[in-house]
Design a protein around this nucleic acid. Structure first.
Lengths: 346, 346
DNA sequence: CGATTTCATGAAACCGTTTTCATTATCGGT
DNA sequence: ACCGATAATGAAAACGGTTTCATGAAATCG
């Protein structure tokens, strides 16, 4: 008993209050509402608190004030540069505002994020960053009724019931294909990620099929899905070249696929872009340093992280509602694309 | 007042207790110590709680139980694959154990991590993952007296007062140089990251200098520091070739530098590995798909994350002290290294 | 100069759980 | 059938702060 009281006193506000000859209230105010405390006593309190290494107990503070200063981010994986970069920016922004970020990885299938969101909220997250459209009806209901601020990223869902900071995957892919068609390509293929619970992949594949059909080009059904791995890109590329050697342009839904695909082409003695054009997606750092430099769709990962952080911050700190906001992708044309049969001119 | 009570009742344990016709204690036990509650009443409580969407308030729970289930990771940046991968694994492991991870990015200078650690602890982190040796004396004191479990990663500090799950940067680099010397190289250079508050870079540079000296080779002072960027690797490489065209082997302390360096060589018309050998560090996914495939020091990032998670978990869940444990790097020899003057034999 | 704010502070309530402690019912052993 | 051990439960304390509310002192005002 004595021990316990002793220990508590040595650590808590009470101890600081006692040492400073003031009440707990005043100590608390010295920290949280400094303007309400007379200058001299405030500095005294702060100094004593510092000397005693006093830090307010996070749970106690959170319980009473109902603020945790914790934001949550549920993303497919950190082991993928654009997500890591987005979270990096998200965390950096929030950190400079005095808040922290708790991250949870969910895999690429959005139908499983409900449990992850629950875990975030159970840890005290006050607002959430999600990736991709909310597909689980339970989750949508939960988000609506729990009133917790949310943004989704990386897509621009038609259903705007959940605010998003994303981009139009359909248009991004359509733009790239448009460019390839303009170059004269007629024989296409696509290397896509798994479509299960992944609206981004679904949108891109839809764009691919639509564009091919509209242009009367070939390859509408040459869509190869694979999980996001470089080896996968290489293997799928080999398969494409075996099944459809007539293919002259491959759209990769990730730079990770693209680098694998380029490697496979090299091994098979095909030249990029002379024999085959390859376009990636994401614009990883290494894209421009590859040989040849990769033509790719640049995705503003850091920008999305920054905007999401800002929006969620405003939502919790100033009660401002989160509004959907699209960001722009752009096709970065480098050396991995050229007109088909370009060996003639090179 | 009525409103308030109403609202609380509709959400809290009290409401569930009332609905189930039991006391708050029993509801709490049904969740946390199910064995102590008779089966039928337990299932009833759980069912009612589920129907009411009841979730225990995280802060209240944390306050009373003194467990947050939150772990902290302070890393230089997520925008760098090996750190992202380590955190990814760390988070995944902890998540499967029912715990969450809060991450904060600190930059590469370890002298600044004290504030970050403080932020993590102020958010309730029960244990910490750090990167690199703890250099700040205040931080070391703080860690010692606060009794919070910690592991450092990515280095193997001589001072074992803080447990580490890392590797010996000195030996790793020494091994790579040994290999190059064995190949017959005599003219070296190194592209390193900034040494400010970064013991890993310091150790690697020391290894470089020692090995060069011991072998009587040249280039002891050709250590070029730059922040970790691909462009940087390219620019520094150009500088090296300008200042010391006799250089035949370049040790890059990051694959990011290596890819930039290889790109620069290509632009300058130098062949890798015929004219110049390049070794990287990290073994990023893309290393083996580059042209030529990159010889590099493989760093077990995911493994460190996994071990760190396990160790910290045991520390908080089973009071087991965390013990230092080294992991192994290995030199992955691929195509970017060869004996000097290898054009003779190719 | 009295009335009225404003300022600075302390006492006590409160946040929403978990945990301790006491109590009652049940059970096995003899 | 009696007794000690065990199982199941509830009442109340505790966790460690912040916030409300009341109070006295100082400042402002007509």
């Amino acid at each position: 008993m004595d021990d316990k009281r002793e220990q508590r006193l040595s650590g808590g506000v009470a101890a600081v209050a006692k040492a400073a000859g003031v009440s707990k209230s005043t100590v608390s105010r010295a920290f949280n509402l400094p303007d309400l405390v007379r200058e001299d006593v405030r500095v005294k309190i702060l100094e004593i608190a510092a000397r005693m290494n006093y830090r307010p107990h996070p749970a106690a503070r959170a319980l009473r004030s109902q603020r945790t200063h914790i934001f949550g981010a549920a993303i497919p994986t950190l082991d993928y540069a654009i997500y890591a970069r987005m979270v990096n920016e998200f965390e950096t922004r929030l950190s400079s505002l005095g808040a922290s970020t708790i991250v949870i990885t969910t895999g690429f299938d959005n139908r499983d994020v409900f449990e992850s969101v629950r875990q975030l909220v159970d840890r005290g997250a006050e607002a959430l960053l999600l990736v991709g459209e909310v597909q689980d009806a339970r989750l949508r209901d939960y988000l609506r009724q729990s009133q917790i601020p949310v943004v989704t990223t990386y897509s621009s869902p038609p259903d705007r019931s959940v605010p998003s900071v994303g981009f139009d995957n359909y248009m991004a892919t359509a733009g790239a294909i448009d460019y390839l068609i303009g170059l004269g390509h007629r024989e296409f293929a696509m290397i896509a990620g798994s479509t299960a619970g992944n609206d981004r992949q679904q949108a891109r594949i839809a764009a691919y099929r639509d564009m091919i059909a509209k242009a009367g080009a070939n390859g509408k059904d040459r869509v190869y899905c694979h999980e996001f791995e470089m080896r996968g890109g290489a293997n799928v590329m080999k398969q494409i070249l075996r099944d459809h050697p007539e293919t002259t342009a491959v759209i990769c839904n990730s730079d990770v696929f693209a680098i694998g695909a380029m490697s496979a082409c090299r091994k098979l003695g095909l030249r990029v872009p002379e024999d085959i054009s390859i376009v990636g997606c994401d614009d990883f750092d290494f894209a421009e340093l590859l040989e040849p430099p990769l033509t790719t769709i640049a995705v503003p990962a850091a920008e999305m992280g920054a905007i999401a952080a800002q929006a969620l911050w405003e939502a919790v700190a100033r009660q401002r509602p989160v509004v959907a906001q699209d960001v722009a992708t752009r096709l970065v044309v480098r050396g991995s694309t050229a007109p088909p049969g370009a060996w003639n001119v090179t």
